[in-house]
Simulated scan of single mutants.
Amino acid sequence: MTVRCTVLSSVSDGLDLRPKYTGILHCMKSIWHQEGLRGLYQGVTPNIWGAGASWGLYFFFYNAIKAHHKEVRQKELGAAEHLLSAAAAGALTLCLTNPIWVTKTRLVLQYSTDPSQKQYKGMMDALGKIYRYEGVAGLYRGFVPGLFGTSHGALQFMAYEELKRDYYKYRKMQSDAKLNPFEYITMAALSKIFAVATTYPYQVVRARLQDQHNTYKGVMDVGRRTWRNEGMLGFYKGMVPNLIRVTPACCITFVVYENVSHLLLHR
């Protein structure tokens, strides 16, 4: 439910006719009154596909790259190696999933300010129309800030790995020992909050580039206009609902991943 509020908040530059919200509760209430329950779940299909594909591909690429580094170095990896492995995994994942995130943004940003604006019936309809009217370039809008955004995953995984390593040392445990769910949740939440607080501005820039209701010349144009019209706070619009949305999902993902990994390795 917070997906749409997050994106609308991040692209709201105060200068157009898009809906204005004072906060996440006001956003949800307004959408409920205007569009009902369906409005709160607009864009949920590509978000599910995008999140599932992104996490799956990310873990696959990350573990493969990390294993390669370990084989070459023949010793425990440090923060720099974890950072580089996660950044490379993020770039590879983005190359495959960017069209899904463009579709999600377009579906979320459908509202009745311009009757002539192309409307999308669903994920596949949006993908088809974006490709038909804008070509491959349309499906890869926001790709450049998305590449900068790989720093988000890189910082998160680096922080997560370092927290785990320090915790194992503190508890005098083996580096492959299994922890309880609460311990995984705590480390996942802390690493996610750290990554979001550090890299959130790129998400605002990326969402605004993908927004069909406004036209920007590029990343620098978004940055200049955001700074001129909204100041520093403009780059952090929607961060609170974003944290509320992504942190629980991140914690669940890491707990499931760690437990399934241990189960498969022991088998």
Rank of each mutant, 00 (worst) to 15 (best):
L25A: 08
G223D: 02
H262C: 01
W32E: 06
H152M: 14
E134T: 01
N180R: 14
D211T: 05
V196T: 11
G23N: 12
F235P: 00
G36D: 05
A195Y: 07
L77C: 04
F182A: 13
A86F: 10
M123E: 13
H82A: 13
Y236M: 01
L263C: 06
Y21I: 01
K169H: 11
Y216K: 05
I252H: 01
T2V: 08
T97N: 13
Y131A: 14
D221F: 10
S175K: 07
T198L: 14
F60L: 15
Q110E: 07
G218L: 07
Y160Q: 12
V256Y: 01
A207Q: 03
G153K: 06
G52S: 12
W227H: 07
M232Q: 02
G223L: 15
I31A: 03
L92Q: 04
L190V: 11
A64M: 10
F143M: 10
C251V: 06
M158C: 15
R18W: 02
L155H: 02
N242F: 15
R228V: 07
R224Y: 11
S54T: 14
Y167L: 13
Q34W: 00
E161G: 02
I130C: 00
A89F: 07
L233G: 00
V108L: 10
L15M: 09
D114L: 03
N242W: 12
K66M: 10
Y120Q: 02
C27H: 04
V219S: 02
L263I: 01
A87F: 15
A88S: 10
P145F: 14
I31D: 05
G146K: 07
H69S: 10
H213P: 04
T198N: 05
N180L: 13
W227Y: 12
C251I: 02
Q117K: 14
L8K: 04
V102T: 08
Q174E: 12
Y168Q: 08
M28G: 03
A53T: 08
C27R: 03
K20F: 09
S191F: 09
I185L: 11
L84A: 11
A207G: 00
Q210H: 06
R206F: 11
G78T: 08
F61G: 00
Q174K: 10
A207H: 09
A159Y: 02
T186M: 12
T103V: 15
I100T: 09
F148T: 08
S85L: 03
Y160H: 13
L155D: 01
N63F: 13
S261R: 11
N242E: 11
D114W: 07
R225Q: 15
E134K: 09
V255N: 00
M173Y: 09
T186H: 06
G218I: 01
L243N: 05
I244V: 14
A79H: 06
